[in-house]
Write a protein that binds this DNA or RNA. Structure first.
Lengths: 147, 147
DNA sequence: TTCCCCATGTCAAAATCCTGACATGGATGA
DNA sequence: TCATCCATGTCAGGATTTTGACATGGGGAA
């Protein structure tokens, strides 16, 4: 019964593997999305807005794991490109609900196919039975760390 | 036989879960290492150098999934803090081998305990049998993406 | 009502990282 | 030998992200 840590090699640790996989995914998405004129945070933002229209800046930030300030500049970029729309003011509260424009929806749909191809490559690389377990394991780790 | 993608919900995708887990880990390490005066890339660099002394800038960059240029500034910071040493010139070749100083080794050892505690939290959050499979799955995905 | 607390949006400054580029040293093949 | 190619270290510039801070709006408790 070997203890989970410390392993004899740093590259054997879970954190290292996690970072490696995340870096590989990020790199692949970066490259694919560049051809569509989008960055990874921008794409994540569009995808989230397509699924849940009306999300605010802070909510989008939490959903994409960045700070409010970072998401703010992302939204500005998307707004300048006419991919999303956001009211200047609101009747109730302070949160400004964002929505996809028609251009945004179209752009998302074409970029999505490229991203889904990447994800399919990832998923097909592992045994089909293992996928569900992998997802729950990732969730468990994230929750354990307060993610 | 449902296709692996597209799922009905973006947050169900592997990429999203992967990013979430990686972000949670990054945040926890960030917070823990700050108390030791280290950033995550700096810690990763020290850990790699402790295991394989003499690694060059480019090798360290590949090992930590950043660019040569980024690793260069990390090394400068570590050098200014007297945590690593690097010769100004070399007899053979162009790569400059880096080594931990005594201070660097000490700093690494105390920071390591904090990081290992985080990783232990992560590992203990999932069934013990699942760990090995998780590691190989992460590797498979990374390799499939050319990581 | 009024006060306090929290969340939100935003600004400014700094830190971090990446892209593009260039010069150097070694190795490979003609 | 020499020329070409690859990897490395480094510089400059810009883009992205974060930290810190501040003002505003809403909700809850006294």
């Amino acid at each position: 019964m070997a203890p989970p840590h410390p392993a004899d090699d740093v590259t054997e640790h879970v954190g290292y593997r996690l970072k490696r996989a995340a870096a590989a995914l990020r790199g692949a998405m970066d490259k694919a999305l560049r051809e569509h004129g989008l960055t990874v945070p921008q794409y994540a933002c569009l995808e989230l807005l397509d699924e849940r229209p009306g999300l605010s800046n802070a909510e989008l930030a939490r959903g994409t794991f960045v700070t409010r300030q970072s998401m703010n500049v992302v939204l500005r970029g998307l707004q300048d490109a006419d991919l999303i729309s956001r009211p200047a003011t609101t009747d109730h509260g302070r949160a400004l609900p964002a929505h996809l424009t028609e251009r945004g929806r179209e752009r998302l749909h074409v970029a999505r196919s490229a991203v889904y191809a990447i994800e399919r490559t990832m998923v097909e690389a592992l045994p089909r039975r293992r996928l569900a377990a992998l997802l729950t394991d990732l969730d468990r780790m994230a929750e354990a760390l307060g993610g």
